[in-house]
Amino acid sequence: MEAEGPAPAGARRTGSPIIPPGIQPAALTAVLGLLLAGGAAAGRPVLAVVLVLLEAVTAAGWFRLNGMWPARQGIALAFMGGVAADVAVLSVNGGHATAALLGTLGGWLLLVLVLQLRHHGSADERLSSLTATSASTLLAVVAAGYLAVDAHFGSHPVVTGAVAVAAAVLVRAVRLPGGEPVSLAAAFAAAAVVGVLVGSATGFGGGHGLLLGAAAGVCALVGLRVASYDWPSRFVHFTAGVALPLTLAAPAVWMLAAALS
């Protein structure tokens, strides 16, 4: 892979680099979450199509969050890892979906490592490229976990988790009296309540929906916090800020679906 150094620093600025993505990225996350829920309800092939979009935004967002731009080769490699995971999960029966996901991740990380042998930059550049590409690949494959959940445990956990994330990010983006603690508590509560409502409506169960919605909400808030580092550009908010809340919730959805099934 060619050297992919950090983006130029650009103009100086003052103030905290931690700025929440805001309402527009939150609205995009909510739309993407609802598309995931609709795709899960419609069937695995439709869900896979929506996941391709999530994986692309996740891969691009992680590189931009790390200040590495342009990074076309790394983004393409991470994105194709997610697509390969989708194909692998679609190719096996439900009971082997998780194994297919983990096998793809292991194989793709090995490919990333081998490709770094062609990197002719300095030691620091090679380390930065390897770290960013490996992490981006991991996240893209993790996003495909929604497909593994659907294959193994059915669509209800995916629908519940995706809608809970959508609720959490929308509430978190609204300015509420009381500041940060109130906003975080309200977003968490919204995810839990929506989990109960969606879980009850889908047949997943209100109690199960409460646990899954709360866990997905916590992961969504963590994703928003990570993406709140908006330097070097606001593009971070419209990539990582959109994708990470949903991507980071995928492992929680899988673990709770397995525990509650």
Rank of each mutant, 00 (worst) to 15 (best):
A257I: 14
H156P: 00
V89N: 05
G43E: 00
L184Y: 03
P21M: 05
A59N: 03
A100Y: 13
V163Y: 00
E4I: 10
L28P: 07
H120M: 13
L117P: 04
L210H: 01
S91M: 09
L260G: 14
L51I: 08
L197W: 01
G61Y: 07
A185N: 06
V89P: 09
F204Q: 13
V57F: 06
V226P: 00
T131G: 08
A123H: 03
G203Q: 15
V87E: 11
L244Q: 03
H96S: 11
V92I: 01
G207M: 07
A85E: 01
G205Q: 09
Q24E: 05
H152N: 07
R64P: 08
G81Y: 10
L28Q: 14
L197V: 08
G74H: 03
G38E: 10
G178T: 08
A76V: 15
S228A: 15
V196H: 10
A187R: 07
L244S: 02
G95S: 12
A41C: 11
T247C: 09
H208Y: 14
A27H: 04
L105G: 12
A42L: 14
M80W: 13
P20M: 06
V158L: 10
S16G: 03
A166S: 13
S261R: 12
G217M: 01
E125G: 02
T160W: 12
T247Y: 10
S183L: 01
V174S: 01
A132K: 07
L54T: 12
L65G: 09
L90Q: 08
L221P: 07
A151D: 12
V92S: 09
L109V: 01
A166H: 07
T137Y: 12
A78Q: 04
A37E: 01
A189K: 06
